[in-house]
Design a protein around this nucleic acid. Sequence first.
RNA 1: GCGGUCGUGAUCUAGCCUGGUUAGGAUCUGAGGUUCCCAACCUCAUUGCUCGGGUUCAAAUCCCGACGGCCGCACCA
Length: 492
Amino acid sequence: MTRRYDEVMSLSLRRGFIWPSVDIYGGFAGFYDYGHLGAMMKRKWEDLWLRYFLGLSERYYLIDTTNILPYKSLKASGHVDHFTDILVKCSGCGLSHRGDHLVADATGKSAEALGTQEIDTEIEKLNIRCPKCKGTLMPSTEFNMMFPLSVGPTGTDQAFLRPETAQGAYLNFKREFESLRRKLPYGLAIVGRAFRNEISPRQGTYRMREFIQAELQIFFNPGTFDDELDFESVADEVIRISFEETKEDGEVEGIEAGDLLGRLPKFYVYHMAKMQQFYLDILKVPRERFRFAELGEKERAFYHKLHFDIEINIDSLGGWGEINGIHYRTDHDLKGHQAGSNEKMTVNVGGERVLPHVLELSFGVDRNIWAFLDVFYEKDDRTVLRLPKEVAPITLGIFPLVSKEGLPELAREVYDSLKHDFSCFYDESGSIGKRYARMDEIGTPYCLTVDFDSLKAKDVTVRERDSTDQKRISIDGLADSLRALLKDEEPA
RNA sequence: GCGGUCGUGAUCUAGCCUGGUUAGGAUCUGAGGUUCCCAACCUCAUUGCUCGGGUUCAAAUCCCGACGGCCGCACCA
């Protein structure tokens, strides 16, 4: 692991962002807890995400759905059958292989639909041996990545923890279509937990067994969606993109959204542009650390017609890491639930019956939080976390210059007047420089200091984190001045 | 899951090979002092050998197991 990983993790542990769950019992692989700073940062990230993506359309809405889903619904979605791997272990060298891959290699046909018994039969019939050492293979075992649960007193109602939040949107599609007055397109956002029994969780919060997704599922009429978007507003956006053929080289092209239309559908490019703007314009992620990366046919799920990941160059994880995805899921999901539930999912819009298609904007919240801790962490003379103001867990540090002669009292007054409107932190211990340093380290964008002049002039100094520049602002109207400052406007 | 490697206060680490005084240092944190703007300084204080067995008169140190971290393989619809 890199030194940067250790530094970021050390900061995170020390100050209270993230740490392993159940730490006092030695930890629990694949599970992490958020401390008081991490939890606040995550909440703010989610709020910002929600405001931005719901703001993309007056027809995008937030819903909230259950973490536990019954067998039937996940059978219909394909997760019961396809979210599994059939593993075959070699009795000689002990290596595990995927059963369907072994059979597919021997027959030249996809074996994805076969069960464990069928795989075993095929292996015997075709006399398949370990590709590594030619040893004999043991009976196959099934491994489903979903966590099974028994619901109810008899335990006969089989269920699972949801492997993705997306299903909640599909399951509620019809209800919301009615509530939202039978119009397309519309979108359902869910911010919530998903669970996957990863074989080998690694790299901190990058691959977890319980994680948080922020997803927007957009239901649309594939025949008309392109014309329902204001594509002109994003046509000039230079999209940073790596296609399948070149992404391994780390090559990133800059292509105007308008020029991608020959290669990708309009609605898809439009949302790519909006996602990119969220990162580059709102969150101020350095441009060179951001890209879309195309997934090839073998990498993506069979029902993802188009799949690009958003990757951030994360030094502590050794380079480009996937944090989000934009998936064109076609009508796969609604079609599956239509068949599984016998509920008709086609809807009547503009005089025709359509089975809506789905565009999924999917964000890994924990991965974003880690990426931000990494990307904005800087250590040379001082340690500064240059977090976007909106996601910094604490917005204002409020201090008396020294803790005597009436300064703490006035500083307390300032604190009390702001504490309900901003995330504030009051401190009077140690030297002023120490207190600034502590705030820099956790990304606090502004510190207000009450000094001796403040007593007469009724003002405070405002110190900016990145530049350490200071200016004086009157206590009268302070909240409004700070609001302006936080929006990058000049205070009144 | 397999193989390798590692696990010492909140954080980073010395000690382990060669078992034996009170487990040392730095940072951090708390209290007090000092202090008119960027981790200053002084005094005092809190917190530790991942867990469980075993060997031994004696285990942070040696052995076994578990748990966890990292790396490689596999996996990541």
